[in-house]
Design a binder for these strands. Structure first.
Lengths: 207, 207
DNA sequence: TTTTGGTTTTGATCTACGTCAAAGGTAAGC
DNA sequence: GCTTACCTTTGACGTAGATCAAAACCAAAA
């Protein structure tokens, strides 16, 4: 993971990504930019590893990442991040405590990072504090909604139903993620997912 | 669900509950109080029902509630709230869209409520806006951490393991919640939970 | 082209959890 | 007390998903 200057187009993508949550004025962007870092992660390298404190929130400019846990020596993938999404081991980042998950790039990935300490400064910044608080609240609320849906799926749906709804709502992702990662994400083994696909006769591309 | 004046002790409990997130000065409390409502819900009555927009966030002063979904005519309980916790059908409240979950009092319950419109006013209030934003952010972040753990449990643990960790970490709750609700919460049927308990020989009170 | 490493599929078998139904328990109400 | 309503346990049995292992597939590297 190495850090560089932020290109103009990268910054533009970031601005557009943030616009869903808050809009900063040009003057505010000038204040904000010094706290941002560009970074790239090569495929298979890690954004954060188990046991280390997650020091950054990232915004994915390009590429993708997966979250996984290690249990009995095996990796279990629990989540994914793609372009225009934020990425962090949230609990670790928010509490600055060791991360339970690993986050690894699935492809060569470009990010904009904000370090935890910088974020604390921004939250106390005379000109930016209010909007940063608002931004933080809206992001957090956004993820609460996502997580709520995901928990509900585990409570009320069978693995097969979870696969089929994923097929309806996020078919694009299925084309981009190795199937055994998807299986973990659904809470089952790769072998079982293969069988579910066979019996439902509905692969991601079937026309 | 009926609303009344807020008693002094109720307000005190609320203040202490908030203190985990933000502390308001006496002057700020004077501004804030008009936006609060006391409310009570009788056992089995609903805080919000499926299909209706959730108009309030509540803070539980006394009592408990359960979240449930209805699937094929059956109720599936997915979450609980107890004293000193916030309660709302978050996605519905935050987006002001129809709720997918029902929230029902498991016991006679007393709450402090903030209506959505009032919250919007507070978030724009000249004196309180900043702290309310901060408060909102911290609450949301708190729930993100809770949800993250819950999702992880579904991904990496078996139902039996989930039960045993619940037994370790939240044994108190098991004494207060009917077992068939706990079963749903763990993602299994009441019959299966009964068998897990038998085979692990570890009920909630075994000494 | 062949090799290699990783992924998906398939087969055989096991088992935890689901389903249905009956029997006990327990607590509230009459 | 008895009744009623609701939980929990138990039994019998079905099934989806897990496990283990082999084969097929596929794409990148040599």
């Amino acid at each position: 993971m190495k850090n560089q200057m932020i290109s103009k187009t990268t910054l533009q993508i970031f601005k557009e990504g943030l616009a869903k949550f808050v809009t900063f004025s040009d003057a505010e962007w000038i204040e904000l930019t010094p706290y941002l870092m560009a970074s790239s992660i090569k495929k298979k390298d890690h954004f954060v590893v188990h046991g280390k404190v997650c020091k950054h929130v990232g915004f994915v400019i390009k590429g993708s990442l997966r979250f996984y846990h290690v249990k009995d020596g095996a990796e279990i993938t629990g989540y994914f991040c793609f372009e225009n999404e934020f990425v962090s081991s949230y609990k670790s980042y928010l509490k600055q405590e060791p991360s339970l998950t690993c986050i690894q790039a699935m492809e060569d990935t470009e990010l904009i990072l904000i370090a935890y300490e910088d974020m604390q400064q921004l939250l106390a910044h005379p000109k930016l504090a209010f909007k940063m608080e608002q931004f933080g609240r809206l992001i957090a609320e956004y993820y609460i909604c996502c997580y709520e849906d995901r928990i509900t799926a585990f409570i009320v749906q069978s693995p097969e139903e979870r696969y089929l709804t994923m097929l309806e709502n996020q078919a694009g992702l299925l084309l981009r993620i190795p199937q055994h990662y998807v299986a973990n994400f659904l809470g089952i083994t790769p072998v079982s997912l293969s069988r579910i696909r066979k019996r439902t006769l509905r692969g991601p591309v079937t026309s």
